[in-house]
């Protein structure tokens, strides 16, 4: 009788704990502790912050941009790993931070098609005052562009998985072809008993 009661209580607590009452959802902080050995949101955020700080602090960049706010464009970073990462989002985040620094101006080639379509509408529909209509050929030209790559090395030993990720970013001068700035962010994470689905 006593054993049956213990069994019943344990099972009841198990049912409650395993979430029969539906999923429990929490708002999480952005920089939470790692839950896998793979690339996570906090790794991307740290990388973006480090790259933006490094670029702002670099003496070579300051010398190349002295007395002006250079116009920059972005070439999305290349993903040389097997994992799926939105590389454009990373360069977009770096751009956001750099724009906030008020040291650079940015143009965006990826929206050039939409720009042309709007200008065509202004020119052809007749709704816009022709004197105010924006025409192609007046846009700023990018003087430099930001790009980079992500690489990784994965090592497995028994049930231990070791991931090494390396972000590399460069700022290149379009006119001279010179690489003005470059930096790396290395991330190494390992886990034991982690299930891999790739």
């Amino acid at each position: 009788m006593k054993t049956s009661v213990i069994c019943f209580l344990c099972l009841a607590s198990l049912i409650v704990l395993t979430g029969c009452g539906g999923p429990r959802v929490y708002e999480s902080e952005l920089d939470r502790r790692p839950i896998t050995s793979r690339l996570e949101a906090q790794d991307i955020r740290r990388t973006v912050e480090k790259m933006a700080e490094s670029l702002i602090a670099d003496e070579g960049v300051a010398a190349a941009t002295a007395g002006q706010k250079p116009v920059l464009d972005i070439e999305p970073m290349k993903n040389r790993t097997a994992i799926s990462v939105d590389m454009k989002s990373i360069t977009d985040s770096v751009r956001t931070r750099l724009i906030r620094s008020r040291l650079f101006r940015f143009v965006d080639r990826s929206t050039a098609g939409a720009d042309i379509a709007i200008m065509d509408e202004q020119a052809q529909l007749g709704l816009t005052n022709p004197k105010n209509a924006i025409r192609p050929g007046q846009q700023l030209a990018a003087q430099m562009y930001l790009t980079g790559s992500l690489t990784d090395i994965t090592t497995r030993l028994g049930r231990t998985v070791d991931h090494y990720y390396k972000f590399t970013m460069i700022l290149k001068d379009l006119r001279s072809g010179e690489i003005i700035w470059t930096d790396e962010q290395e991330i190494r994470k390992f886990a034991r008993h982690e299930k891999l689905d790739r």
Binding site: I56, A57, D58, E59, V61, A62, A63, T65, S101, L103
Partner: peptide, 8 residues
């Protein structure tokens, strides 16, 4: 201060 004038 870094070269761009920002505080470090």
């Amino acid at each position: 201060k870094v070269a761009s004038g920002m505080n470090r």
